[in-house]
Design a binder for these strands. Structure first.
Lengths: 244, 244
DNA sequence: CGAAGTATTGAAGTCCTTCAAAAGTGGTGG
DNA sequence: CCACCACTTTTGAAGGACTTCAATACTTCG
């Protein structure tokens, strides 16, 4: 499929709104491709555009003086990349491609112009910011109050649900391009411990995970273990709509 | 001072904009007072208004099945209370008064009407959402990658800076109404451990903390210990302005 | 003064980390 | 096509940060 056709489909799927899809497609300029491991922006830099992820997976992270890394967001196709940085004019995180990616930029001035014509784009931006925040809340609850096994199970549930909603997997399996080291940086654990906890999930026949592919063998039990309540992702119909 | 005069001053201080201050004061209706321990809203409920905190301190938290609590935000005077809930139409957290509080509601329909006249309020809302997210990122980094001592030191720095910016303290001291149990729920630690770590900060002559009042005895060393870089709070002039 | 909440202390145990090394995997070039 | 290299995964052993349980002191407030 041609990238821009694929992109339009993706946005339609992700926003659930025809009008918004048109706005977005109209707002974005030429796609930009990045290799795995390449950075889109570094912490403290000034973002020059708002990026929509068209293909691949991106992580937002920060480093602490000790050198270790904490991931603060994961983005899947259809997501806006760190919208708050666009609002604040400065990025609090570094953005790095976990897989080869394709991004669609919306230049700052074009965004401004379009928002004067209609509030659609701003409303989408606002909703996306709220959703990103809600996801981070869930991670924070995990890091503060859930043991490693549940935390990992929860992440698996989240990624699986979001991948499926982005059309990149089905009920039973999806792409899962994170290394165990990546997972450790998301969950605030050591690689060694992630490995051991992962093996517990595998030997409990809850998941299979190999060569970048995740299989859910028993979603019901996994969801119970993780205390996963997918409502907070607002993945239902009309993702772009809100209750206001 | 009369509440509404005090409130106007507070918003002026907090937003740094005369125009915005007028909009906010105009948008809010009668103040509402709540006692310490009272709830403004519970998780999963639908917020009926956008609240501005005029006096006191509020916590946003969630409970996990085990019964333990994780705090996800703290609000000081001048802050909007959980703006994302207003956007999404559902609250992901419970809001509870840590001290006696005074809140100024902006009814949903009044907010809508005002935003049609001018984008000022929406812009403020958006900026506040971005700032809340940035603060939570910092907490998450702490929970994932910083040991308890640094995490506590960081919280102390943050609260002190925000209190001062809200006009509720000076360089050396401010109100600090959290119990050790509250602190534990913020940092994702046990009360016992918070107590021990707090004693380390005290015996290092870094802080004094008693009867709800915090004193910073050596800000420089505390900031170094905590790796606290206050930029992320955007407390400088024109808090309401942004780089877009 | 009594009651309820808050702070403090000790002891034992657990979850997770660190260090270190070996085994497996995938991609690249000879 | 195979050999090699970097990266990733896996395993073991020891140590440390933090938790839990339980009891005691201290505050605050009616």
């Amino acid at each position: 499929m041609h990238p821009s056709t694929e992109f339009t489909e993706l946005i339609r799927l992700s926003t659930g709104s025809e009008a918004l899809t048109r706005s977005v497609v109209q707002a974005t300029s030429t796609f930009k491709a990045l290799e795995k491991g390449e950075h889109l922006i570094h912490a403290d830099a000034r973002p020059q555009a708002l990026f929509i992820l068209a293909r691949g997976v991106v992580q937002a992270y920060r480093r602490v003086p000790s050198g270790s890394k904490q991931t603060l967001a994961l983005y899947v196709p259809g997501d806006m990349l760190d919208p708050k940085a666009f609002i604040l004019g400065r990025s609090s995180v570094s953005l790095c491609a976990i897989t080869p990616i394709l991004i669609a930029p919306i230049a700052k001035d074009r965004f401004e112009r379009l928002t004067q014509e209609s509030p659609t784009l701003v409303r989408w931006l606002t909703t996306r910011m709220a959703l990103d925040h809600t996801v981070l809340e869930e991670w924070t609850i995990g890091m503060g109050r859930r043991p490693a096994l549940q935390r990992l199970a929860h992440l698996v549930c989240e990624i699986s649900a979001r991948m499926q909603a982005a059309g990149m997997g089905d009920d039973a399996s999806c792409a899962f391009p994170l290394t165990q080291s990546d997972i450790a940086d998301v969950l605030g654990l050591s690689v060694v411990h992630v490995n051991r906890v992962l093996q517990r999930l595998r030997s409990s026949k809850l998941i299979e995970l190999q060569s970048g592919r995740l299989k859910l063998l028993d979603r019901a039990r996994l969801v119970t273990l993780a205390d996963f309540e997918p409502d907070y992702l607002y993945l239902g119909v009309g993702k772009g709509a809100n209750g206001a």
